[in-house]
Every structure is written in C-alpha cells, then in structure tokens.
Design a protein around this nucleic acid. Structure first.
Lengths: 262, 262
DNA sequence: GGTTTATCGTTCGGATATGTTCCTAATCGA
DNA sequence: TCGATTAGGAACATATCCGAACGATAAACC
C-alpha cells in the first residue's frame, strides 16, 4: 500500500472515531506501529491531527464553536498558567480592556473573581461573562470576524477611542527588540486604541511568541508595561525585555509538575 | 485508553451531571481513582472544571446559555411559524436590522438562507451567525444586559443612529390602537433608532401581544409597515391594525413535525 | 545486473503513564 | 473539641509508549 493511501485511510478513520490508539490504527491499515507512528508524524505536521500518548486525535473536532475556547489544546496548559499569573496582577474593581485572542480568553476565565468592569471586542469573552449579573461588560461594536468572533472595523476602533481604563490585557503574534507585532491588519488599529486607552498595558505572550516578529508592527516596547509569558520561555528574549525596562512575569508551569528543573 | 480521550470523556460526563464523585468517574472511564485524580488536576489547570472534596464539578455551569434560545418553549411553535413567515418577506441580499428578543431570534434562525447583511444588538443572534463566513454581521456596541444578552446603553443607541437599512425586524411587549409599547425602558431608545434607520419596519408579535399595552410607548402605528403574528391571533385587533393601513401577516400553524428543521 | 533510494519492520534505551501503598490533611458526627 | 472516617498527595514498581537507529526489502534508475 502506498504511504499516501495509508495516511488518507488513517485520516478517514479518525474522522469517524475522533480518537484512535496506535494498535487500532496499525491494524486498520495493516502496517506496523512504527510505520503508523511515522505517518502520524507527517499528518501532525500537516495539522490534520494531534498525536497523544498512545494514539492520535483529530485536530479540530466539530468546530461549531469559535476557533478557540476552553477546549482548545494548542499550548493550552501554558496559556492557562499565563491566565492565572496575569489575573494576579489585576486589582479587584479595576476597569480592564480585554483584547481578542485565545491567550487573553484564558485570562478572562479567571478574571471573573476580580469583578472588574470589562471592555472587550471579543465575542467569546462576552459570552463568557454574559450570564453573570455581577460584572459589567461593555462590548465594542463592529463587524463579526467569522470563526474568531472578533469585532473589527471602524465601529470597534471608535468604541475604544472614547474610553479610558486602568489596564489593557493584550496579546499579539510576536515580540522582538523592535517591538510588538501582529498578523491581522484589521486588529492593529483596534489594538492601538486599546493601548492608548489604558494606564497600564499588559501583554500575554506564550513562549512561542518571544523573539518572533509578525507581519505588521503594532507598538514599540516603550508602550508596554508588563509581559506575561510561560515557564518555557527562552532566557535571551526575557533578558532583553527586562533590560528594556519591561516587567516580565514568568508563569509557573501547571499540572504535570517538575517538567523543568529551571 | 489514552489520557486525552479519558479526559474528554470526563469532561463530557460532567457536562451531563454537573457534579461527579471520584469513584463515579473512575468507574465511568474505567481507570483507578489515582489516575482520575491526575486527570482532574490537568482539567482543573485548564480551567475546565473545579475540584471539590470527593469529586469535581463543572467550572462554568453549562447555563451560559441565554434566557432564550432554540430550547425556549414559551410559545415556541407560534414563534417558529412567525419566524418562517417573516423570513418570506425578506429579499435575498437586503440589509436587515434584527432587534433583540426571542421572537426575532426565531426569525434569525431562518434568515440565514437569505444571506442578508445583518445589524443587531442581540448577542444570541450574533452567536448564531458568527461561525458563518457567508454573512456579514455587524454587532452594535453596548453594555451587556445579563441573562438576555442584549446590548444596551448609549453606545448601542449611537451605533444604530449612524446607519440605514432596508428592513428592521422588531419585537415588543404589546400593540394596541395607541401604538407599539415595550417594557424595558433601556431598549426603547435603541428601538426608536432602529425604526428610524429602516425603510420598512416589520414587527413580529405573537397573538398574546395583540391588544396589550406595555409600560412605555415605543412608536405610533403609522411608523409600522408590517405586523407578523400567529394563527391564534384574535380577529378584533387584527382588523383594527388592517384598518390603520398595516399589512398583517398571519403565519399558518405548524404541525409538530414541521417545527424543527434542523 | 548493480546500485541507489525510499520505505518498512525490529530492537532498545529512555520517557511517560498507571495502579498500589503509605501517609498526611480535611470533613463529619458525637 | 476530639476522634473516626474519608479524601488527597507523594513515592515507587510496573506496564506501556515514544524516538532513534539498524537492517531488510522492493522499486527505480543507470
């Protein structure tokens, strides 16, 4: 059998069962577990599936939800730790801007207990808080960007241009010595207004964002007060950021403790 | 079974029962309590659930639904028929304002096929359309009114004051010879802007709203073009409305079979 | 025909996950 | 408040899984 055919059969099989063990797959395609392993490597690099201990699971199960949510598993443990560490930086009752993006969404999940007044352009964040009468949540207007649930466009920019808050909790595609950068041009205008509106600017960036530069520049490092990242962050970019006068918070690893002796 | 699958099953099980003991879970996934404990640690650190003595409970209890939705049963058959009848009045590609309210939500469910450009201040409607890239949905800004998921306040009023659309699909608390009235004062300013912004104004009012007057007056009958109601509507108010020059559409009753298209 | 290349299966050291055991911490009833 | 009971956590032995390296096989190419 051709490798390609085998991989396609693996993919089709996973579409039916969502999860499959190595043995299961190797029997399904009549090949050794080692071969299946190699196939899974290829398929994972294509983004079709995600490998797990003992097998593999489909990358995006039914995506009728937003592209991210609590189910999201891309770096989710790291993002969760960032969420907790970032929440610790917020005082109860502060006014907060929450950027759209999966990392900030994880912050939002914990922020509820601080009962702040929240401004956001993220539909998932709005849904998260909507049932809670204790929180006042202001949603910016705008056009819904499908799948991500972000509100964009002039209405969104304008909403943020008229307010002022204590803290803005942001995320982006990357940070390097030149500053913060992001990929979606549509978001940049909005994010600039968010930064302008806030006394204190916190960026939540997992380790994969450090030292990386994304398409469009968003702001310089001088405009950033705090960067929260996870414990897998490389030393070099962290040192650089600190030298530039930014408070860098490294969130401790969660769950599978002792992964890093540090 | 691999860890990920087990954790997902735990999560799904909790979605059904809200709370579960360790023994319950360990039997459910056929693993030792120690393993379940470890899984719960991971799931808790992801924020999916909260551990308690003896078990775990869901972090965000699934009632993050809004007070109404497709599940809503209050007059839902009638509202469903109104939704279908109202959709028939819309031309493909028209620009539409959708009011917040359960009756209009039922219209929204059918409106997707007409692929209009939609303006709304309803979070449930936004969520309904958010995954669909074919529709352009503009959400007004505003403060989230909890439980109902309506955006209110000056930001919302302002959003609608700046646009113009072909049709506004509205609902309210009641209609009588004096005009349309509604109960929520917060909504009235917004609804007036919606009416102002539209060429054609359609009110969707089930039979219980006809002849009833709610707290605050919203607009006169002259500003209304069409009223869609259901087949249980009394004859008197319908005749009155027709005499005042309003097109009244009485939606035919639905059999239980035809009630649920999806 | 001989060589090259790609692919497959096997093996083995290291890593991960699991269940058991033991001990500490929390909860409940008297 | 105190003891009895139960849950939680840490440590360990074991089973399982992963990744890399090796050798074997078959098709492809000269």
């Amino acid at each position: 059998m051709q490798p390609e055919e085998r991989q396609q059969r693996i993919e089709e099989y996973l579409l039916q069962v969502e999860f499959a063990s190595l043995d299961e797959l190797s029997e399904q395609v009549d090949a050794s577990t080692s071969t299946v392993r190699r196939d899974l490597q290829i398929l994972e690099s294509k983004g079709v599936l995600r490998r797990t201990h003992g097998g593999a699971r489909l990358a995006n199960p039914k995506s009728d939800e937003f592209a991210f949510s609590a189910r999201d598993t891309q770096h989710s443990l790291e993002k969760e730790s960032i969420g907790q560490a970032c929440t610790a930086l917020i005082q109860p009752g502060q006014t907060v801007i929450l950027d759209a993006g999966s990392t900030v969404f994880h912050v939002a999940k914990h922020l509820e207990q601080k009962a702040p007044q929240v401004f956001t352009n993220s539909l998932p964040v709005a849904n998260l808080y909507a049932p809670n009468p204790r929180l006042e949540v202001v949603l910016s207007g705008g056009v819904i960007y499908p799948r991500l649930g972000v509100l964009v466009g002039p209405l969104a920019v304008e909403s943020f241009s008229k307010i002022h808050v204590d803290v803005a909790i942001m995320s982006s595609g990357g940070v390097d010595a030149e500053g913060i950068s992001n990929s979606h041009g549509l978001l940049i205008d909005i994010q600039r207004q968010m930064i302008r509106a806030a006394n204190r600017v916190i960026f939540c960036l997992d380790h994969s964002k450090l030292g990386r530069r994304s398409l469009s520049p968003l702001c310089s490092l001088e405009e950033v007060d705090v960067i929260v990242t996870d414990s897998q962050a490389a030393a070099d970019p962290v040192a650089m950021l600190k030298q530039r006068g930014i408070q860098v918070v490294v969130a401790p690893a969660l769950g599978k403790a002792a992964a890093e002796p540090a």
